[in-house]
Computed example of a mutant assay.
Amino acid sequence: MGIIEYEIEEIRKLCENTVPNSKIIACLCGDSPLVRVDIHDNSLHRQLTVCLRFPPEYPNDSILVELKSRTLSLKFLDSLARLCEKHARQHLGKPQGLHVLRFVQQYIHENPLCVCFDEIQELRRDLSANATPDLLKLKQRHSIVQLTAKGGEYYYKLNAYIPNEYPKQGVQLQQQESNLPPILVRYLNGQSCEIARQCVEPPLRVDKNDQAAFQPVPSLYRALKFCLEATSDFDVELCPICDKKVLPKEPSQLELDDTKDAFVERVYCGHLFHQGCLKHYLQQPPFPKSGKLCPAKRRHPRSDAKFYVGSASGRQPTVSADTGGRCSIRLAHDRWVVNVKLAESRWAQKQARERELQEVLDFLK
């Protein structure tokens, strides 16, 4: 019996007893000897098939490893296959098959974030080459991706927990912290969680056929990409009224008193305003019957009037395309619900008071 036949027989006898969660599919000798083993890690989405082939000069040459999976990405499988062959070369001149199988099982057990390998790589690219390593940390032991999004001196930090049934289950966003205004932190928290939910739950307002055809999609990259883009844009966003930056350069200068003019407000169309600018704009004529429109020079990329994920075909806007170089979405905010008649009445009273004061001043002169 040659060394290859001997090793294949050893794998047949020992593999399922010494490699946890493994199942032998094939052990073939002959002209093209190979071993095929299924390995999983107590999760439907962390399982793969290991195919071992023996080169003519084996064991002086390393064993050839091919990995296949219905759930793990090709890029991850290629990277892991190279690591397996590198590991096999440490055992040249000796049997290598069981060592490789144990290495694969241990690797997927110790690296549960392998199910979102491609998404993590995309996030690294989005963070740019100059980003420091602390902006994206992987906590494999706890299945957590920790992201810190930055815009100027402002930051938004959160933990993204990857559940066992990911991507069928959505990513769970936890432990958010930030030095942004509370209204923007609430927006980031709520919208990122909503994006993750839309990735795994079918829309309610569609027919039964569309609901049945819905397929969950990975949610990690979509949710964290939104946090990255929104946080970086907050720092440079201008108030549509005064055309100055909404946020002060230093977070310590933020106005937290919601009665002050410098307090930051976010409206339905997505734009940010200084509260004083917004009040002045809403209190001045004309007062159209349909309500005041946002005067911003462009539609906001993160308007509440749009779906972020939509159907499986991609994002679907619920408002018409921007054709006039203006936002032109009706201004709406929980604290600014004023009908046309009330607005006109308030403006008329203000004008009357100003005329009375002017008459008094003229009389005194």
Rank of each mutant, 00 (worst) to 15 (best):
H271M: 12
A305F: 10
Y155E: 06
R335K: 11
L101R: 05
V309N: 01
M1Y: 01
I3L: 09
P59D: 04
Q316T: 14
Q358V: 07
E7C: 02
R124E: 10
P216H: 06
Q90S: 15
P203K: 06
W336N: 09
R266K: 15
K350W: 06
V340N: 07
R326L: 14
A230D: 00
R335L: 14
K244T: 13
C84E: 07
G151R: 02
A149D: 03
A212T: 12
L220M: 05
V50A: 09
L127A: 09
C29P: 01
T318I: 13
C277Q: 08
C239D: 07
K279T: 15
G151S: 05
N17V: 07
R102E: 09
T49H: 03
L74Y: 04
K137G: 03
L101C: 08
E265Q: 10
S303V: 05
I162Q: 03
N179R: 05
S192F: 00
Y6A: 13
E85C: 12
L224Y: 01
R222P: 02
V50H: 03
L228E: 03
D207H: 10
R353I: 12
A352I: 11
R46M: 11
E110L: 13
M1C: 07
I162D: 01
A305W: 01
A230Q: 04
A26Q: 11
I241W: 03
L256N: 09
L278C: 06
P163N: 03
L256P: 00
G170S: 14
I195N: 03
L256Q: 08
C84W: 04
I162E: 01
S128A: 12
C84K: 07
I4P: 01
P216V: 07
A305C: 15
Q358F: 09
A296F: 07
Y161A: 11
Y155C: 11
E165S: 12
L98W: 05
G30Y: 02
A332L: 09
R222G: 05
R326D: 08
L77I: 08
L254K: 04
V145C: 08
W347H: 15
A81R: 11
L44P: 08
N339M: 09
K23W: 03
C242R: 02
P317D: 11
I162S: 02
E237S: 11
L224F: 02
R353V: 13
E57W: 00
L28H: 04
K68E: 15
C327Y: 09
P55Q: 05
D362T: 14
G314Q: 01
L256Y: 05
V340I: 10
Q211H: 04
Q284D: 13
Q105P: 01
D304P: 00
E177R: 13
P181D: 03
I162F: 01
V37W: 01
C227M: 06
Q284F: 07
V246K: 02
V338D: 10
V145A: 08
I39Q: 05
S62N: 11
L361H: 12
Q47M: 09
I241M: 02
D261R: 09
L224I: 06
Y154A: 10
R266D: 08
H87R: 13
E354V: 13
S22P: 08
P216C: 10
Y281P: 06
Y187N: 00
P59F: 02
D235Q: 09
G325A: 04
C199K: 00
Q275P: 00
D304W: 00
V145I: 12
V338S: 08
D257W: 00
K86W: 02
S303R: 03
K208S: 15
L254C: 07
Q351L: 14
R315F: 03
R326W: 09
P286N: 05
F214K: 08
